[in-house]
Design a protein around this nucleic acid. Structure first.
Lengths: 212, 212
DNA sequence: GCTTAAATATACCGACCTGTATCGTTTTGC
DNA sequence: GCAAAACGATACAGGTCGGTATATTTAAGC
């Protein structure tokens, strides 16, 4: 292995082990054994275990958001359909045999203090994902894109949590149907039940087309 | 402290620390110091730390489900309103200053193997909560009580997960509104959009009354 | 090709981990 | 009230934790 690849290889190994066993349960000795690297090397790249965790989360944050974007943009064309396609991406993630729950939620669950850098890194990831949902909701011309984004986000988190214990993709499909239903409602009645707009009608049509 | 109370006191102390710091991060030495008990005493009541965790989860499972039942039954009369009142109970839990996420999800997150007894205990709790939702959904005469229960459950989990990172009760209120909307839809169209029933109409009315 | 930086292997550190052993004291149940 | 059981305090075992030190080998860059 070329030396320039070692850092990335260490982070990938760390992410795999963190996902399999958690953060506290993953020891440095196991990590370097799995990575096939000397302990000195690890500590040349990362000052402490916490630094390693933070770097790993940062890497995974960028990876997973880029993957979601690519998946969604390739799968669906309109922003409305893309909002729903995020659930297809999530389902693919959850159906992975190695799926053990969201590693950012696990990170927050093992580092519960709000000031803990690891907790904050997990929060940051969640904020960026939410921002992507809001971007899509805005592009879909929803009257309240923030509200829509938070709805989608809540369904994502619920599906992920349930899937973590059921170990099936079914909760994700259920949450997608719930999202479709709620978005249709949202498009139908942006604020007041009487305040329909032509744009909202168009969205409702797109939504029904997106249902499967 | 009377000796008959020691076991319960140990479990309560353990649950408090598990909630604050997690399972791996909570050491036996800290636990006995906080409980004001000798190590010998702890190991007379529980063979291993895992046994302690399992007993603590069992205790908390019974406590929290009994509390939810009591809260919901006191707060609302009809099963339909009670289904929504579960979110009020959840909001109260989440607004607690000590809230650090669902301890059963944390347990599953730190013990990821499906055969791990701790993981299985967490799954068992989730199943029992789901059964309660289904009981309420059945009493509310929904056409598909299982589906309704899983919808409520997914919204609970989503709200809890989001609240774990935002540290606010707002996601729970949002999820309650989503539940109200989805249940209204469910009552309106139990299976086919055309298959309305008198019971479903009554439910829709009850639901609207439950909205705030 | 030579210098420099980074890799390796290994031994080690102090702290902390779960769990046990010992022993004197206190409480419980009959 | 007395025997048996549970308690508290302490010391300790064996292992693992995160992290360092040292000395040798390997590879990268000018």
């Amino acid at each position: 292995m070329r030396r320039s690849e070692i850092r990335g290889h260490l982070l990938d190994t760390a992410l795999r082990l963190f996902n399999l066993h958690g953060y506290h349960a993953t020891g440095i000795d196991l990590l370097i054994a799995e990575a096939g690297v000397a302990k000195t090397t690890l500590y040349r790249h990362f000052e402490t275990k916490e630094d390693l965790i933070l770097a790993a989360l940062e890497r995974r944050d960028e990876q997973s958001r880029a993957e979601m974007r690519a998946f969604v943009e390739q799968r669906a064309n309109g922003p409305y359909e893309r909002l729903l396609a995020t659930f297809d991406f999530l389902e693919a993630s959850v159906r992975d045999k190695q799926f053990r729950g969201c590693i950012f939620m696990s990170a927050a669950g093992e580092h519960k203090e709000a000031v803990d850098p690891v907790f904050r890194a997990a929060v940051m990831h969640k904020r960026l994902v939410l921002a992507y949902f809001e971007e899509l909701a805005h592009a879909a011309r929803f009257a309240e894109p923030k509200r829509v984004a938070e709805t989608i986000n809540l369904l994502h988190e619920g599906a992920t949590a349930v899937a973590q214990v059921t170990r099936t993709g079914e909760p994700v499909r259920r949450s997608k149907r719930m999202a479709a239903s709620l978005l249709a409602e949202e498009a139908r009645a942006p604020t007041e039940p009487s305040a329909r707009s032509a744009g909202a009608e168009r969205q409702a049509t797109a939504l029904n087309a997106g249902r499967s």
